[in-house]
Computed example of a mutant assay.
Amino acid sequence: MSMIGEYFRVTAAQLDRAIEDPDWALAYIEDTFDAEESADSMGGEDGPPPAGARHFSTDKAWHLLDFLLRRVDFPVDVVHGENPLGDAGDWGYGPPCHLPVDRVRLAAEALSGLTYDRLLDGVDPRDLTAAEIYPLGWEDSASLDWARDWFAGLTTYFEAAARDGHAVVVWLD
């Protein structure tokens, strides 16, 4: 079983409701995700682009992105979220968290000013192996490039969420 970084955009009002009723949030997210997935399969695409998607995933790259962002003292925990989502139980690998609108805005601004090459500056694959960064397999420098597209998608996703005034629910599944 894989550990996957998951994100879901919500309005401020939906976030308030989700904090009060995490079971509603999970059902809402699952229903919305299923509807997006169904519409995408009918269109023959791999899903909506990050700028238009309610749901986004960093797949297994979440841990590498967390490692890289922590190295540059990134101001927002975009990988795990910062605030618990009410009294939500385990949504896969722990309870979900959220980033309110102001933190999403700060994250979007900081991500926009950061490049993946800057994140990789000075990183050696042995550092990742020593830190046991999931999913492992950091044999050479080329393996570091693996998460580039997920970082780009995450940046676009947060920029769109900030533009639309959305909060973001974050969890590992």
Rank of each mutant, 00 (worst) to 15 (best):
101 V>A: 03
92 G>K: 05
79 V>F: 05
171 W>S: 02
13 A>S: 15
14 Q>Y: 03
54 R>H: 12
70 R>F: 11
136 L>T: 09
121 D>W: 09
88 A>I: 07
38 S>K: 15
124 D>I: 02
168 V>C: 05
56 F>Q: 08
42 M>I: 15
34 D>E: 15
104 V>N: 06
93 Y>I: 06
74 F>M: 01
37 E>S: 15
31 D>V: 05
162 A>W: 06
126 R>C: 04
19 I>R: 13
27 A>F: 02
70 R>C: 12
58 T>L: 11
44 G>D: 14
161 A>K: 02
129 T>Q: 10
115 T>I: 08
114 L>H: 10
154 L>E: 11
72 V>H: 05
142 A>M: 08
145 D>H: 09
165 G>M: 11
32 T>L: 07
127 D>H: 04
62 W>R: 08
53 A>C: 01
80 H>Y: 14
76 V>Y: 07
3 M>D: 11
115 T>E: 11
121 D>M: 10
171 W>Y: 08
146 W>K: 09
36 E>P: 00
99 L>Y: 12
68 L>E: 13
42 M>Y: 14
48 P>L: 14
155 T>K: 12
171 W>P: 01
106 L>W: 08
173 D>H: 14
66 D>S: 14
36 E>A: 10
126 R>D: 12
82 E>L: 04
68 L>Q: 10
77 D>L: 03
161 A>P: 07
14 Q>K: 04
144 L>I: 03
28 Y>C: 01
